[in-house]
Design a protein around this nucleic acid. Structure first.
Lengths: 337, 337
DNA sequence: CTGAAAGCGCTTACAG
DNA sequence: CTGAAAGCGCTTACAG
């Protein structure tokens, strides 16, 4: 077990000062001749700067804390992968924290993150208490919320245009001729869940329709399944359900099929997210696309701007996505299928 | 933006030396009186030790590098979440690296990891070249391979008992009365893929059967789908397919259903992994379970033993999992369904 | 451009 | 048990 070479060893071998070695590796000015000698010696010794030492001095760890819940929802692994790749491309690294799909426990996580001197925190579908937000703010650690806004928190956020998206899905159902439309909503404790429901209600209102039912599905499979069962078991049934995200919509489809109903003949179903699974033949789910790549880009851009002090105020970015019409819901009337 | 308090500031306020503060927070001996004064001052100042500074001195960053590919395969998000939780519970943190689903590029990742002085590396289904393995070894950084063995690499690994598992699936197909059994294999460049195929061949052999066909599905959806299409389009068709993992099996089911075949009547399908999706009604896939929780436990245990110098030699751990009989394949003959 | 020196925030022998 | 001091591996003014 050989121990890592240090800048001093490189300096000795290159016949220059330790400062010179540091300058070459930190991108400061150095003459071509010095740089050459240093690089040669470094290569021979397999030298690489100790990132931790550098971080301690500069105060920049180049680590971004990524807090994520809901990893069983296919939307997040994809987002995580893209976020991680985008950050790596910018020379940042990701310290990952997974938290039980709940609301608390984020407190300790943020403490840990701060202990590691992270340059920023990205929280995916996780709420930050105002106390924590204040803590991060006063510590100068920028926070960007991904896929979950928090009004009045002073935190930047990147989401899809959830109200519009909810309306988009609902209009599609209305245009297909449905009138008894139910909504199994996303968790009403989250703005994302509330906004999509808002879009649903607006669209129904505008069409002069009354919601068949609105149930909080909590973004959970089992609750969504139970809700679907409840909706479909009586005599008075909805003829369409807009579900707050794809993850729950799959559970709804599984449930109603098991009950003997077929989509879209007896029931149209529309989800939200357009995760890869939505396109698979087993579901072929009509859904509102969340443009993950653009959301990730916006998140990383916002984070970098915050870190580099280009933006000082918080940004609330909403990105629109299209409805993807598939076979789980009837197509708009008058349109050939 | 207030700057973090340092141990010196705490010392001043507590009326003790900076060393005393350090001792209290690093768990070294200190008198109750001193400890009390220090804790009080620290609390007032919101002091927390700078982990980076500590890491630099102790040489222990308490960071584990986690390298992962294939995040679109539902097995990995789940493993990632459990791994991350288990490591967090042990006081370690996870630096995440996602790599394009390929074989190279891992080189640079390991370099980055070493720059951050990680205490260990867990690589999930990623191959480490012998050169890299040597590098990690000589740097004293333990490596544990998750869900992918590498014979003769000197690296520890935790996998399921893939040969047995492959045989288990194949026996189930044979016992159900199938004779024209094909195998869409996992990537033959990986030991996991080869072992499962080995189990398939052994079981066929033992039953005096000849494989209908063996195709390398590369662990990829599109290749698995194309393979299934090819297998099913002629007149001579298999009556059962053992697929190298669930992720590919879903693609196979989607494909054959789209072609008009129904499982298990016209074709039995068995996968490998038992990801959550396998239990969903849309697939209800018979599969060999990989006990993720036990694999994660073994991985973390192995890693900790390596870090703490308890184990010096590499371990190759294989964990057996049961066959989970569902409706995508016919049940064993003579057994009531 | 370059070297000597101070210092980042800690841990850890070393004396007392 | 406790303080003064050295040192971890770097970066960064400061002179030259």
């Amino acid at each position: 077990m050989t121990t890592r070479a240090t800048s001093l060893q490189v300096a000795l071998r290159a016949g220059v000062s330790q400062s010179a070695v540091s300058r070459v590796f930190s991108g400061a000015s150095a003459s071509p001749a010095t740089a050459e000698k240093v690089r040669k010696a470094a290569a021979e010794l397999g030298y690489r700067p100790n990132v931790l030492a550098r971080a301690m001095i500069t105060g920049k760890s180049r680590i971004i804390g990524l807090v994520v819940a809901y990893l069983d929802n296919q939307f997040y692994p994809e987002a995580l992968e893209r976020l991680s790749n985008a950050l790596q491309a910018e020379g940042y690294h990701v310290l990952l924290f997974t938290i039980p799909n709940s609301t608390d426990s984020i407190q300790g996580v943020v403490q840990d993150l701060m202990d590691y001197q992270v340059d920023g925190i990205i929280a995916a579908s996780v709420s930050i208490s105002s106390g924590l937000a204040e803590m991060c703010h006063s510590a100068g650690i920028p926070v960007v919320l991904f896929n979950r806004g928090q009004p009045d928190s002073g935190l930047s956020s990147v989401t899809s245009a959830n109200i519009k998206g909810g309306a988009l899905a609902t209009h599609a159902l209305i245009n297909a001729g449905h009138t008894r439309i139910a909504h199994i909503a996303g968790w009403q404790g989250s703005l994302t869940g509330r906004d999509r429901k808002q879009g649903f209600e607006d669209a129904m209102d505008q069409a002069g329709l009354v919601p068949f039912a609105i149930i909080d599905g909590m973004f959970k499979r089992d609750i969504a399944a139970a809700s679907a069962r409840q909706l479909m078991q009586g005599d008075a049934r909805p003829d369409a359900i807009f579900v707050g995200n794809d993850h729950m919509a799959f559970a709804v489809m599984d449930t109603v099929r098991t009950m003997g109903f077929s989509a879209p003949d007896e029931l149209s179903i529309i989800g939200y997210d357009d995760v890869p699974l939505a396109a698979w033949a087993a579901y072929d789910l009509t859904t509102v696309r969340q443009p993950v790549n653009r959301m990730v880009e916006a998140t990383v851009d916002t984070m970098l701007a915050l870190i580099n002090g280009r933006d000082t105020y918080s940004q609330t970015i909403e990105i629109e996505g299209p409805l993807i019409q598939r076979s789980s819901s009837k197509p708009p009337k008058g349109q050939l299928q």
